[in-house]
Design a protein around this nucleic acid. Structure first.
Lengths: 112, 112
DNA sequence: ACTTGACATTCTGATATCGGCATGTATTCT
DNA sequence: AGAATACATGCCGATATCAGAATGTCAAGT
């Protein structure tokens, strides 16, 4: 067997830097493809194809008005990622506690 | 030009289902490679290589004891993802009415 | 109807990525 | 020292994935 399919999966969709840039560009608003192209500096087909991937995994929604298509981010699509990452939250909280301890120690070191 | 490099990037590292499984398996504890292999049902070289990727992006740390190597998750490595996703948080909070989205997500989660 | 504008899609080629297998390396045990 | 154990690495082949260029589609303006 060879490599696994990775597209059509939310986790992989945001694995691509360009797709993240596109999502960041759209942000909380709504943008036409042309506007995205102008902003991110990719070719139009490139943007269209990335948008297709994002659409298929449910990370963006599209609405047509005339010959424009406006894309908006579907925040709910990011929930699986957020909840998965959250599962490890305690791990970095513990780290922060340790960092706090360290800072306190350094402070005490200074005070002496 | 062809496709971009995607490995050596935290976002891509978790794009792979197997790597996520490995991280889930290690969880908040510490496991030797052999234990991971036994749990996830992948071959040993496969696991070792995925662990290498995870090491390179800083998502796991390794410590040697005898001929065993124990891996633990470095939660801090997930922070970039968490904070990026958080940037869209307002989007899903406002759209709790769209139950469809959630259902679609769950379906996708199941299909994998 | 013809043209223009805004995107989507298709085809192609390059290559990164993954899995499988074999081999290398270091450590412990006898 | 030799064997066994626990991993890591290297090589290879299959293919998914991306970028680029050309083309297709569909609505709007003239």
């Amino acid at each position: 067997m060879a490599r696994n399919r990775t597209t059509a999966d939310v986790f992989n969709a945001i694995g691509d830097q360009h797709r993240r840039t596109i999502l960041d560009t759209i942000g909380t608003g709504e943008l036409a493809v042309g506007e995205i192209v102008a902003t991110v500096g990719l070719t139009q087909p490139q943007v269209s194809k990335h948008l297709k991937v994002l659409r298929e995994v449910g990370l963006v929604r599209c609405s047509r008005t005339g010959r424009h298509r406006h894309y908006r981010v579907n925040g709910a699509g990011l929930r699986p990622i957020e909840s998965w990452v959250r599962g490890f939250e305690t791990l970095w909280n513990e780290r922060y506690d340790q960092l706090d301890d360290l800072l306190v120690e350094l402070q005490q070191e200074e005070d002496r």
